[in-house]
């Protein structure tokens, strides 16, 4: 699983550029603009899935046994996996279900799960991170221990365990979303905690305390605005990581179950068909790659646009004034 590289609160003490400058810096990166366009197209396809399949005149779950060669075990009849005017991308081996329809509906599941999971992760991470940083020593201890345990739980391992015992009444996409979110919040909480702790030592936060603001007013007025940049940067990179997580679970056969289509789940079957029906493999694999790549590029672009140090990294004698806070935090800082 490509766990997105962590960035801790390294940049939180320096102001990030304001909104307009941020957009300008983001748009100045041509590759990022291109990636954003590709990704927007993918989202559009996912949203318009019913429309597109209606246009094609197919249904993602309809079997077409006539279109596969039962003698060879179900290889689609026709060239390139049975591509035709009716079936724009051919059909699935064995079942003959329409590939285009499954791909566009699969986009809904893959992207939807990733997005919602990211939102939950960020909400949990920000809440728990602030709680750890501001709630006193015990709060910090508890959150840190829970984080340790959650981090030591290999995500796939615990997902396998949970899925095996979760009640069947919960729809699989919801369950997968919750699992991914529940096991992936601690990156955000680490960033928020480290950022809040270092911001807390700043004089303007002390001044706010002396002005008479309470802890949560300070969190809202002084900390959160400063934490927005690192959290957004990290969150944008969480989306591709969640896309991969869902695909991995589905690939292992414990994620999205047929007949609901998802790209990762399509890959599972494709594994055995790559010689006879290569399009069946290449379509979901390629789309996964493009999705993750475009999201990663957007994430990188956002990071660059928000990074106050972006332009001034390589001057002689630039002092590195951030002394390492702890072994792992500083390691992760370097990953930025």
């Amino acid at each position: 699983m490509s766990e997105a590289l962590l960035t801790t609160g390294a940049g939180v003490t320096t102001p990030a550029p304001g909104g307009r400058l941020f957009w300008r810096r983001l748009r100045a990166q041509r590759a990022v603009t291109a990636a954003a366009a590709v990704f927007a197209l993918l989202v559009l396809v996912a949203l318009a899935a019913p429309l597109l399949t209606a246009l094609e005149g197919q249904n993602p779950n309809a079997y077409h046994p006539a279109l596969v060669d039962s003698a060879s075990g179900g290889v689609p009849i026709g060239s390139f996996g049975g591509i035709s005017g009716e079936h724009w991308l051919g059909v699935e081996p064995q079942t003959g279900r329409d590939l285009f329809a499954r791909i566009v509906y699969g986009a809904r599941v893959s992207l939807g799960v990733a997005f919602v999971a990211t939102l939950i992760q960020v909400a949990l991470g920000v809440g728990l991170g602030l709680f750890a940083a501001l709630g006193g020593r015990w709060a910090d201890q508890i959150v840190s221990r829970v984080t340790d345990v959650a981090a030591a739980l290999p995500m796939l391992v615990i997902t396998l365990g949970l899925l095996a015992v979760a009640p069947a009444s919960i729809p699989r996409p919801v369950l997968i979303t919750l699992i991914i979110a529940g096991l992936g919040w601690f990156g955000t909480s680490k960033i928020v905690r480290a950022g809040a702790l270092s911001l807390k030592t700043l004089d303007h936060v002390s001044a706010a305390r002396l002005s008479g603001w309470g802890t949560w007013a300070i969190a809202r007025r002084e900390l959160l605005p400063a934490l927005a940049a690192p959290v957004i940067t990290y969150a944008v990179l969480l989306v591709p990581s969640n896309v991969v997580a869902e695909a991995a679970l589905s690939f292992l056969g414990v994620g999205i179950k047929p007949p609901t289509p998802s790209w990762g789940q399509m890959l599972t079957d494709a594994n055995t068909w790559y010689q006879a029906a290569p399009t069946y493999l290449l379509l979901p694999a390629g789309l996964l790659f493009i999705t993750v790549l475009s999201l990663t590029m957007i994430g990188e672009g956002v990071r660059t646009a928000l990074d106050p140090r972006a332009a001034s990294r390589l001057r002689v004698g630039t002092r590195n004034q951030n002394k390492p806070t702890g072994p792992i935090e500083s390691l992760e800082e370097k990953a930025s």
Partner: peptide
């Protein structure tokens, strides 16, 4: 540098104790 919130106008920084009150 760090004694003023970089995201807040200086007037608002000065007003901080007033608003808190």
């Amino acid at each position: 540098v760090s004694s003023l919130n970089p995201r807040r106008s200086i007037g608002e920084s000065v007003a901080d104790p007033l608003r808190a009150a």
